[in-house]
Design a protein around this nucleic acid. Structure first.
Lengths: 160, 160
DNA sequence: TCCGTTACTTCGCCTATCGAAGCAACTGGA
DNA sequence: TCCAGTTGCTTCGATAGGCGAAGTAACGGA
């Protein structure tokens, strides 16, 4: 089954690339891919609750606490008690966080964007169709996937 | 750029699927994806040196030591000083390790294999071509990728 | 013999992640 | 009104993966 191997190898290369770029991101921007993803989620709407981050990233609240701790420590985000429901904590992105987001764009995504743009129209269409098909084959259809790459940057909208 | 978004989303779904299945593997087989990958490398030839594992997985030797420690602790592998060069340590897979490998096949890979096999011939060919193209776009061409999926299961043959 | 290199381990450190336990605040009864 | 249960978050203690630096042992050449 030669083509099967080829496709699996290609998939692994794709995974590998995302992993390596996660490391690059960390070195270049001083922020890990996971923290970057948290920052993105915060910045989307300007503020979110810890629970929402946990749900979207599919990690526990305990994990979110520690991730936000690091962002706060590094001045990327701040916590603020919600006035409406004081159990909740709103997490806000700071100027520095916003700056980090804009200055440390995902190199993997950038590379992909650039090369994708260079494709012919029909090639783009075909590639989209194929990637979606592969995703479906991996049974990942119920995933709430925002258009950002990162191994750690993965979430699901509605849970089982 | 609608198609760009679609393709990025599909990619993220693929990454997400691999991550989720890593967690499944851990629960089902009691072994993490990374350790599983180490075990695979050992089992390929029956024995390898720590250095080889480090190179193939692209992690430091210190990391390999700790990974192998866990495999040894769990009875999956054993260390054995090389007779030829006593600086080297050969790592061997045990029966239990072999059993784990065979009984805990990658569910993600299995799913992909099954669905891939159901495709028409021309569909398979097209999918391979597309995946390889995506991998190339991510600049992952120099990667020594064995046909096994797993986020943590990623390596590179020749380094920069 | 001795010095440099190689192979591996140890040590200390970091991040990501979790479950359980704890605490504070909201909410629905009675 | 007040208590009990739920909800949101943090704290605590673990585990895993990962790294660099330092340490140890063995090889190998001069």
């Amino acid at each position: 089954m030669d083509r099967l191997d080829s496709s699996l190898i290609a998939l692994r290369r794709i995974l590998r690339a995302t992993e390596l770029f996660g490391r690059e991101l960390k070195q270049a921007a001083g922020i890990t891919a996971v923290q970057f993803r948290v920052l993105q989620i915060i910045a989307e709407t300007g503020q979110v609750t810890a629970k929402e981050i946990a749900q979207r990233m599919r990690v526990s609240q305990a994990t979110v606490t520690s991730l936000v701790d690091k962002l706060v420590r590094d001045g990327m985000a701040v916590r603020e008690k919600s006035a409406l429901d004081r159990r909740q904590t709103n997490i806000l992105v700071t100027d520095k966080g916003r700056q980090t987001l804009s200055e440390a764009p995902d190199p993997l995504q950038q590379r992909f964007v650039r090369k994708f743009s260079e494709l012919d129209d029909w090639e783009q269409a075909m590639m989209v169709a194929n990637l979606e098909r592969v995703a479906a084959m991996l049974d990942a259809e119920d995933i709430d996937a925002a258009p950002v790459l990162h191994t750690g940057d993965i979430k699901r909208a509605t849970d089982a």
